[in-house]
């Protein structure tokens, strides 16, 4: 069971350590059902930390996103550990970053928060519109209870969880230095129904589906920026020499962008669903990711973000990889 007292006390203990720079966790947002990332560097800052079904953000992004400011001459860079609070899916990002040497195991202190599924805020906002005051929520058996100005509202998980949580097979962190409370029982199973449904359609129907989605893309790059695995400082899709994808927003360039994004995540996507969550025009990005996830599992017997010692999928091969389609 979620124990906020313990969470805050643990965070205080961690940030009191000399070898820890700060802890990254969640805190209540400024309006509605929003929760925001919180960087606590001092013990008293840890009081704001929270954990609830509203803690959607995958904070692992900040492990690589944090800007490394130039170190003034004569000063030493701050090499202290960063402590990070993770849900199950978030922890897989940590593992995959370790696989890709984005961080060292010593450089990060992982605080595990077993999680019973976080909400799809868009669904919740639709359910309870016009909630402006900060609202809270907690898990209660198979329900999620929202604490609204006019009292508590119980909603079944099925109604408010995003698909990635409904299917989740890793609700418990797969890597941690410390676990805040007991592990929860995993509930998910993966049959890729949604992927198969689209696969079963004709190429024309599939293109009609995606053409519609890609056409609506604004190229805001939120999906890329929020993704914990998209950590290149200089993304190839931003480059001008060579220009892989033009900046103009049209179907061709948008498609090219989305293909490149999905391809670059093949064998790396850890199913946190952040890309889809932040998309302002609701492009089902996880469908692309899950399609490749399915191929990676089925063809290459590989699952990213589980084993920190694994060799990256796209940096390895098996001589007997399937090749039935090769002429």
């Amino acid at each position: 069971m979620v124990d906020l007292e313990k969470l805050r006390q643990t965070a205080k203990d961690i940030v009191s350590r000399d070898d820890v720079k700060h802890i990254i966790g969640w805190k209540q947002g400024t309006y509605g059902f929003r929760v925001e990332p919180h960087f606590a560097a001092e013990p008293d800052e840890a009081d704001a930390l929270t954990f609830s079904p509203l803690c959607t953000n995958n904070l692992a992004t900040y492990l690589t996103l944090a800007e490394k400011l130039p170190v003034p001459r004569g000063e030493e860079p701050d090499t202290r550990k960063v402590a990070l609070m993770v849900k199950g899916c978030d922890s897989r990002a940590v593992v995959q970053l370790l696989v890709e040497q984005g961080l060292t195991r010593e450089g990060v202190y992982v605080v595990g928060c077993p999680c019973s599924g976080v909400v799809d805020v868009k669904k919740v906002e639709k359910m309870f519109p016009d909630i402006l005051e900060p609202a809270q929520a907690y898990w209660k058996n198979d329900q999620i209870v929202f604490q609204l100005p006019d009292g508590e509202k119980e909603v079944s998980r099925e109604e408010v969880l995003p698909q990635k949580c409904l299917l989740c097979r890793y609700p418990n962190p797969v890597i941690y230095d410390e676990l805040l409370w007991d592990e929860v029982k995993a509930w998910g199973s993966e049959d890729y129904e949604d992927v198969k449904e689209l696969e079963a359609k004709s190429p024309e129907e599939r293109w009609d589906f995606w053409k519609d989605k890609f056409s609506s893309c604004l190229r805001c790059y939120s999906c890329r920026n929020v993704c914990p695995m998209c950590y290149c400082e200089d993304c190839v899709l931003d480059r001008l020499n060579p220009t892989w994808t033009f900046r103009s927003v049209n179907l061709s360039e948008n498609t090219s962008y989305h293909l490149a994004r999905a391809f670059h995540l093949a064998g790396r996507c850890i199913e946190c669903g952040e890309c889809e969550r932040v998309c302002p025009v609701d492009i089902p990005l996880m469908k692309l990711n899950r399609k490749l996830y399915k191929e990676v599992v089925e063809r290459f017997d590989y699952e990213p973000g589980i084993d920190p010692e694994a060799t990256p999928l796209q940096a390895s091969y098996r001589p007997d990889d399937e090749e039935d389609f090769i002429l």
């Binding site: 992927v195 689209l198 696969e199 190429p203 024309e204 129907e205 599939r206 293109w207 009609d208 589906f209 995606w210 053409k211 498609t255 293909l259 999905a262 391809f263 093949a266 064998g267 692309l288 399609k291 490749l292 191929e295 990676v296 063809r299 290459f300 999928l313 796209q314 390895s316 091969y317 990889d321 399937e322 090749e323 389609f325 090769i326 002429l327």
Partner: peptide, 25 residues
């Protein structure tokens, strides 16, 4: 082969005719 497999699957998934995406030895 591995990279091509992934890209071929992806292109087909968004509706590109599989006959357009070829690899041979």
């Amino acid at each position: 082969r591995r990279r091509f497999t992934l890209m071929k699957e992806l292109l087909e998934f968004i509706g590109v005719d599989p006959r357009r995406v070829n690899m041979s030895w």
